[in-house]
Amino acid sequence: MDALIANMVSQVKNGDRDAYEGIVDLFKDKIFQLCYRMTGNRHEAEDLAQEAFLRAYMNIEKYNGEYKFSTWLFRIATNLCIDRLRKKKPDYSLDAEVPGTDGANMYSQLSSKEPLPEETITESEKRMELQAEILKLPEKYRTAILLKYMEDMSLEEISQAMDIPVPTVKTRIHRGREALKKVFQQTAVSK
């Protein structure tokens, strides 16, 4: 797989625009998923994921194979998400209307693709709960937790993607888990 990716990257570097399609296809779900978990909004995630792929394409000469291409791509995507989150301070509500959707809110956004009515409720509820907990994490812990658990990256890869030393990655994952525990306790109390 790594050789295949390296091959596609060098084709793109040589000016083969169409070779980039394979790269997008290969990583689009991962990148979209990361952006969605970071922002909690599908439209924003789609926008950010597209922007990440565009930036990667425009800067592909700068990718030098020092570490995995996916790590480099994740780095671009997480930086974009963090920038976006900082620009608009997180102030989102699940009932809030999603911009440009003509009255759709987060609940309808999330359940719109579920086929069976009964599963729709439980599945989307579970997803909403998880997403709500993740969004309560401070962004630097959120990033570390998402890269580790969702993207299954090693501490070394996370260190490269976030540009911080490995021991700091470890601390952030620990603090992220601690924060999740606290969030969970609060949720349990309020129920």
Binding site: E21, L54, R177, A188
Partner: peptide
């Protein structure tokens, strides 16, 4: 149990990019 549950959920979640995503990027 709570944290393991959340992290397991995260590990197994499989969201997909919207239809037409690749074409939009290209």
């Amino acid at each position: 149990e709570a944290v393991s549950f959340l992290l397991d959920e995260l590990e197994t979640s499989d969201l997909h990019a919207p239809v037409g995503f690749t074409a939009a990027v290209m």
